[in-house]
């Protein structure tokens, strides 16, 4: 990959991971049902999360204009690992050996399908 493509790949990882973690933070709002949605609508994190995805959409398009789709999906599958690491750091989620192996299996599977397509 060129330096520009590598930078774009890095940015997709940053925005994808940040977006997911922001949505998780927003989902922790109080209440059930409609009250939960009203609480989320007042939470800044849901807007950060959605904004990160809008930005990531364009960064992903820019990245795919530089590399073949198969290569893009292959290296993009790393986001599964960055989100699970982010979950550990920011939400104190358990990172057991089984979860680590499971994450690697899913990421490898997505990468393999992307590479083969």
């Amino acid at each position: 990959m060129s330096a520009a493509a590598t930078l774009m790949w890095f940015l997709t990882l940053v925005f994808d991971t940040f977006g997911q973690l922001a949505l998780k933070a927003a989902a922790g709002a109080d209440g059930d049902g409609l009250a939960h949605w009203k609480a989320m609508a007042k939470d800044k994190w849901i807007y950060f999360g959605v904004s990160a995805y809008v930005i990531e959409f364009f960064v992903w398009l820019a990245f795919l204009s530089m590399v073949p789709l198969s290569q893009g999906v292959l290296v993009g599958s790393v986001n599964i690992l960055t989100v699970i690491i982010g979950g550990r750091i920011f939400f104190k989620e358990a990172l057991t050996p089984k979860r680590i192996v499971a994450s690697i299996m899913v990421a490898a599977g997505v990468g393999l399908i992307g590479w083969a397509s």
């Binding site: 499971a102 299996m105 899913v106 490898a108 599977g109 997505v110 393999l112 399908i113």
Partner: peptide
Amino acid sequence: PQIIGSLLIVGGIILFAVA
């Protein structure tokens, strides 16, 4: 490779459920 990739994804999700 797509079949193997699918099996890895499904296997990983089953392992998550076990975990």
